[in-house]
Design a protein around this nucleic acid. Structure first.
Lengths: 237, 237
DNA sequence: CAGTGGTCTAGACCACGAA
DNA sequence: TCGTGGTCTAGACCACTGG
């Protein structure tokens, strides 16, 4: 392996396994600890230490008596754990739906322009409903190359990250800004609200594992019936 | 120890250590692994496993060559990692200040009433400034008993959790709701804003380790100059 | 039963930090 | 140099899962 500095074995093994997992070398389950011991010619604790790190990162998941399985929590769960968009009025039974409005090329949004040099982005505009009631206007922006591929999909009622996922693009980090303002006329019309009701304005930059911007989201939520609920905990929850 | 079921040794040790840490048996540093091995009559890996769990929970912190130290991240850092309140207009140099306005007993706020049976709460009202400009109106509510103790402090320019901390109350979990609305007259006056500018409205319930409500926060932020910035990551960041 | 992960031991040597 | 945590080994037995 060239001149690998002098990383501890368990780290090297962890990296190797992680790489293989992300390259989909394994289907669902990684080899047992005995196999890995042989393969890497190390003791069991070293293997276990490597695996423990991956478990902690949410990449692997152990099942006693069965084996160690690839986890890679779906992004839905991950993002969901942060910004659960919930209805204050407690009408749980409502059906969510996202309707495609338009797709076009546009100039790079401000927020992205600071970081990237590209001048043109793909923009997808959609409206999110709860039953028949419009909830938000969502615009997703993508770099040209990625956008071209995404343009081939049907964007009705799908999560953007599931489309990204099918292209092999995984979201990893995100940065989000939350503020509010008064709606413009078009937003009032689309959301079916009065001009006197403010809207929550959310921007989110999504990054992949290497820190590249893969998606910029720009959303406007009506504030009269909805709010963001955030759970905070020191550990998992 | 009575009839301890049959918990693994490292779990028992972890619990024991955790208990001692929370009871402030140690000052800053826990005994070395050798000492603990002797004390519990177990092997080093068992001790290390117990400690690893506590490190993962953010309760301990290892320093190579020095020892294992009690961490218990200050709440500031913990809460701060979530909702960093930042100025969009990028005036970094501003000085934050929180001015005490009033303290009184009041009926239990709605949000708390759902969970608790108490009928009266202490309410502390303050205004947060950036330099000379008002940023938000913050109201903190406390259960009677706790409120009585807190009433003795000077509430100018201190974080509520630092006062709680000095009473031995540690925050552990939180639940937060973010939405927006138009300001009422009093809020316009206090925040020095026009009636046409919406405000961000944040409610937060803070819980201790046992899940008791220890604080309810109710804040109104002006939206014209400020926004919430949230960083999301799968692991630590 | 066989296979897998879970727990635990005893002992070795390394790497860092402070005196 | 000494004490601390970091890495690693070899081997043992237990507990869960599935055929």
């Amino acid at each position: 392996m060239g001149f690998t500095k002098h990383l501890p074995l368990h780290i090297q093994i962890k990296i190797k396994l992680e790489e293989e997992i992300l390259n989909e070398v394994y289907d669902e389950k990684i080899p047992g600890e005995l196999d890995l011991m042989e393969r890497f010619s190390v003791s069991r604790s070293t293997i276990r230490q490597a695996i423990a790190a991956l478990v902690e990162e949410g990449i692997l998941e152990k099942r006693h008596g069965k084996g160690t399985f690839i986890s890679l929590k779906p992004v839905e769960e991950w993002l969901g754990s942060f910004s659960t968009y919930e209805n204050i009025i407690d009408d749980m039974g409502m059906k969510p739906y996202i309707k495609f409005l338009s797709m076009e090329m546009t100039s790079t949004p401000q927020n992205v322009a600071k970081t990237l040099e590209e001048e043109v982005f793909y923009k997808v505009k959609r409206i999110r409903y709860a039953d028949e009631n419009p909830v938000s206007i969502e615009e997703n922006y993508y770099p040209l190359e990625l956008g071209k591929k995404l343009a081939k999909f049907n964007w009705d009622n799908v999560a953007s990250y599931s489309l990204l996922d099918s292209l092999g693009v995984k979201l990893w980090d995100a940065k989000q800004i939350i503020t509010c303002r008064m709606p413009v006329k078009e937003e009032c019309k689309l959301l079916n609200i009065d001009e006197t009701i403010p809207v929550l304005f959310i921007e989110r930059l999504n990054f992949d594992r290497e820190g590249n911007i893969v998606e910029y989201e720009h959303s406007v939520y009506r504030s009269d019936h909805y709010a963001f609920i955030v759970k905070l905990g020191r550990n998992e929850n």
